[in-house]
Computed example of a mutant assay.
Amino acid sequence: MKNITIADVAKHAGVSKSTVSQFLNSRFDYMSEKTKKKIEVTIEELNYQPNIVARSLKQKATFTVGVVVANILHTFSTQIIRAMEDAFHEQGYQIIVCNADDEPEKEKKYIEMLLAKQVDGIMIFPTGSNLDLYERMKQMQFPVVFVDRTINNLNIATVMLDNHMAAKLAVDQLVKKGRKRIALVTTSIIRNISPRVERLEGYKNALIAHGLPVKEEYIKSASADKISSVLEKMFRLASPPEGIVAGNDIVLNEVLKFMKERNLNIPNDAAVIGIDEVPFASFFTPPITTVAQPAAEMAKKSVELLLNQIKNKDENEFVDIYRFKPSLIERDSD
């Protein structure tokens, strides 16, 4: 069976090869709707398959980017990756998603694999431990954007939440509802992962601003499988917490499971607010108040920053940190 070429498509459609090439590269500025439709129908009739390898060699691009996510189990991770995929698709790019499971060695292998595949750029939700590799990519002027987490002194463009504000919104809401003994529970603060550290700082600052004491017995970090025992000890205190800020969606799941298993009433026994919106929040009983991240807007900015680097490789100073404001979604759990 003969391989169909651009020349065959052009001849069949009655246009030039350059016009077909412009169509394939989504350059429609000077192309009529009639010509576009004619080429589209011809491609379908001839079952033409563009030679992606040849196109990549000619344009010195693979039109593929990598996304190395720290932990795909987080609802926010899946939300923002889905939005990234849409944004990249609109620009003619495909994405390869890799899940590092918060393991630096796994992250390193994925980044090296993506570099070997000659992707045009990489989005990284950094684990924080591959500093030499991040620095090497920076020196290579390889297009990189950090998402959700930042690393000091690397000067890599970063898109993330205003985590201090996220914690403040949660504490402010609990205080408004008359709660004074407010706890923060988060997953393990390892490698100083910035969202967890910043949310803890924001929580402490908010308590101080309200004239409330910062008590270490109300501040707990643990792996997901240990959160239940952490909560058990907290609720055995002489003065157990009246409100709990769950540092992320994984913690929120564990908090809700713990309270249901102990027949603790939300919000009467303890109010609960989760940082990060979750799909079940609106129909849980009671509906859960959350602090949501603007995932779509963050994805759009991340894609914009990476494509700017890919298309303007001589301009390698893309070093700002872009922080997005969270929003409080009030329901009945506080």
Rank of each mutant, 00 (worst) to 15 (best):
K168I: 08
M1K: 08
V303G: 03
R331W: 11
M140Y: 10
L252I: 07
L161T: 08
T187I: 13
G202H: 06
A54E: 00
D29M: 11
V175K: 00
L231H: 05
I52Y: 09
N130E: 04
I310H: 03
G14N: 08
N316L: 01
D29R: 14
D269C: 06
N205K: 14
A222P: 07
A281K: 08
T35A: 12
N25R: 07
K204A: 06
Q22W: 08
A281D: 09
G92E: 03
G92F: 07
I156R: 01
P286W: 09
Q139F: 04
K36W: 10
K58N: 10
K117Q: 14
A54W: 09
S239R: 02
R331Y: 08
K58R: 14
L169V: 10
I190R: 10
D172K: 07
V41F: 06
Y218D: 05
A157V: 13
K220H: 08
V97N: 02
F146Y: 07
G128Q: 04
V272N: 06
K226I: 02
M84F: 08
D320Y: 11
I208N: 01
L174H: 06
F283W: 14
E277F: 01
I72F: 14
D269N: 08
S188Y: 10
N163Y: 02
G128R: 01
V147I: 15
A238K: 15
T285W: 10
L212Q: 06
P213T: 10
M298V: 03
E105H: 07
Q59P: 02
Q49K: 15
V291L: 07
S223L: 12
V214K: 00
E304S: 12
A54N: 04
I190V: 14
A83M: 05
G211H: 10
K109A: 15
V245N: 02
L212S: 02
V67M: 11
V144N: 00
L131R: 08
I266V: 15
S333I: 10
E40A: 13
L264K: 03
D269H: 03
E112H: 04
A7L: 14
L264D: 02
I151W: 09
K300A: 13
I190Q: 14
D101V: 08
L305S: 00
F258Y: 15
Q91W: 01
F235S: 04
S221V: 11
N205S: 08
